[in-house]
């Protein structure tokens, strides 16, 4: 069995120089071996990075969205989120650590259009 073969003998796909976003090092030399459902191996990654890559799968583990604890569609949840944020006088947009710069830019636009607050983990 070659090192890139999985237990079911279907060869794994390999991604070279993948980027790990677990810690601030953002290592960009990771080799990922995956079968589109889960990542089986993260070569060069450290203990923390391996755990980060191997613990995420493409399975549908959670409902797409929850409104008041009940399952809902993404469309309904987006409408409800927009309604709640628009109704608020002083909404807070917070976090933005475990997300991409593209999403962060949208968050800045969100806080701007709401006339609200914008803050990240840095302020802790």
């Amino acid at each position: 069995m070659s090192p890139t073969a999985s237990k079911s003998d279907t060869p794994l796909q390999v991604i070279d120089n993948a980027t790990c976003t677990f810690c601030g090092c953002v290592c960009d030399d990771i080799q990922l071996h995956h079968d589109e459902m889960r990542i089986h191996k993260a070569k060069k990654a450290c203990v923390l990075g391996s755990a980060w890559f191997l613990n995420h799968t493409a399975e549908k583990k959670y409902p797409s969205a929850l409104i008041d604890g009940k399952e809902a569609t993404v469309d309904e949840a987006i409408e409800e989120a927009a309604r709640l944020l628009h109704e608020a006088d002083m909404p807070l947009v917070y976090g933005m650590s475990n997300t991409t710069c593209e999403a962060q830019k949208e968050c800045a636009a969100l806080a701007d259009s709401l006339g609200g607050l914008l803050d990240s983990h840095t302020s802790l």
Partner: peptide, 24 residues
């Protein structure tokens, strides 16, 4: 925390400040 540096950079680019911002 992964991309927390990106949050600083994006907020500085978009608003001029790194965190703790109000648009009210």
């Amino acid at each position: 925390h992964g991309n927390v540096t990106g949050a600083d950079v994006i907020m500085r680019w978009q608003t001029g400040f790194p965190f703790g911002i109000s648009f009210n």
